[in-house]
Design a protein around this nucleic acid. Structure first.
Length: 421
RNA sequence: GUGGGCGUAGCUCAGUCGGUAGAGCUCCGGAUUGUGAUUCCGGCGGUCGUGGGUUCAAACCCCAUCGUCCACCCCA
């Protein structure tokens, strides 16, 4: 046992859980398609420097969370820790961004070497959406509308709230950053240890500190919104108006700072209180400078990623009987056993949407019916020696108060069709 | 990377002061020779996470290690 465990932080998805993931993916696909977004795929492995260049060298993600190792030829490669960089690489490499507009989405595993926790795994499933070539606030609003619709489809809209902020232009942010660093440095010895460290690593993050004394000091800190450039202010205002118009509730949170360096202007998080400390279920924002930073021609972009694992945790309680069968076929005796598979095939031809399970292998008749009951099937089809010789099949209603009936093989599909319609 | 909780049957867990391991559920068989509730009876099932130490004796105490959970950090 000891040697065959999953690697630390890697989740095994049992059928019950996988069902939830499939549900989320299906809903996402349906919603994204109805907004005209196109699915794409990309490799799990990329050159290490792609992520370094895109995400920012000083970030925790780059410094200590990447699965990086040497390829056999000595090149440094990395299991993708996020999707945006790779998506841009694909789009650039195949010319999707040259004077074009794109609405793209993808899904798949991401990898970060972190300490596992509820809702946080080393391999985690993410759905990403990226839009290119649209500088206006309308596309920012669109992806938020798209998110909101997805939450409604998933039935979790009541449990999630939207938090919004604007980081301004890159220039405004740099200007603000220096002012903030100045202020923080002036009170440095009164700050907690983490916050002191963050002055150099990511000063905006200091606002996230939970230490009361630090929070006290932050009250007098300069605020980002006072440093926003006019265009960014206008952009943000348009976004808010658009959301108001479409009845999307949101909360302004001046302290949202995405962990990755590439964001500008709009940033947002969809959060829930139902998952403990890992409450962010979906997050994203605008990254107008990123494409150029990776090496392409400057193209505006907005996007977000949602954490499938976390949403799956939220949905868990609602998935009790997702794998129920419709029909369970039991048989008694050698001849009947052979007949059973054949009968089931014919039924599947006639009712391809139905889940039909045939009892295979050994098993007493009584035990087979117990299995039928446990499968949550509505009907049991019964094949015994009597049925085989008479050319009939027993149809037993497992969930209704009805007598078992005996039908001719030739009439079976009609009867089943009527029952399930 | 830091701090804390927890690892006992397939699952959920009990196990007193250290005295050599138990229940419920599941599964299998029977009561009922071909009919799924319930009930009753019987059965399968254990390296007590792993390795070391203390002891006449360790699931229990000590050390290490792995895993897991929670929080920090960080983030989806």
């Amino acid at each position: 046992m000891v040697n065959i465990q999953a690697l630390r932080g890697m989740q095994d998805l049992l059928p019950e859980q996988k069902e939830i993931f499939r549900f989320i993916e299906a809903k996402a696909r349906q919603v994204f398609e109805c907004y005209g977004y196109q699915e794409m795929g990309m490799p799990v492995l990329e050159a290490t420097h792609l992520f370094k260049r895109a995400v920012g060298d000083g970030t925790d993600l780059i410094e200590k969370e990447m699965y990086t190792f040497d390829d056999r030829n000595g090149d440094s490669i990395t299991l993708r820790p996020e999707g945006t960089a790779g998506c841009i690489r694909v789009a650039e490499q195949h010319g999707l961004l040259f004077n074009q507009i794109q609405r793209l989405w993808y899904h798949g595993p991401m990898f970060r070497y972190e300490r596992p926790q509820k809702g946080r795994y080393r391999q985690f499933e993410q759905i990403g959406v990226e839009c290119f070539g649209m500088p206006g606030a309308d596309i920012d609003a669109e992806i938020l509308l798209l998110c909101a619709r997805l939450w409604r489809e998933l039935g979790i809209d009541k449990d999630i709230t939207l938090e919004l902020n604007s980081l301004g232009s890159a220039e405004a942010r740099v200007k603000y950053r220096t002012v903030l660093v100045e202020y923080l440095t002036s009170v440095k010895d009164q700050l907690d240890e983490d916050s002191q460290r963050r002055i150099t690593s990511n000063p905006l993050r200091v606002f996230d500190s939970k230490v009361p004394q630090t929070q006290q000091l932050l009250r007098h800190a300069p605020l980002l919104k006072d440093y926003l450039d006019d265009e960014s202010k206008q952009h943000f205002q348009q976004l808010c108006e658009q959301l108001d118009k479409c009845d999307i509730a949101y909360q302004l949170n001046p302290y949202i700072v995405r962990g990755l360096d590439y964001y500008n202007r709009t940033v947002f998080e969809w959060v829930t209180s139902s998952l403990g400390a890992q409450g962010t279920v979906c997050a994203g924002g605008r990254y107008d400078g990123l494409v150029a930073q990776i090496g392409g021609k400057g193209t505006p972009g907005v996007g977000f990623a949602l954490g499938l694992d976390r949403i799956a945790l939220m949905l868990q309680a609602k998935f009790e009987h997702a794998n129920a069968a419709d029909i369970y076929v039991v048989s008694n005796g050698e001849g009947a056993r052979q007949q059973a598979l054949w009968v089931a095939e014919n039924v599947r031809n006639a009712l391809p949407q139905r889940k039909i399970v045939v009892h295979c292998g050994a098993g007493k008749f009584k035990a087979q019916l117990k299995r039928a009951d446990a499968s949550e099937a509505k009907l049991a089809l019964i094949l015994g020696e009597t049925e085989v010789t008479n050319g009939t099949i027993g149809v037993k209603f497992l969930r209704d108060d009805r007598e078992q009936i005996s039908v001719n093989v030739a009439d079976l599909n009609d009867i089943l069709n009527r029952f399930f319609s």
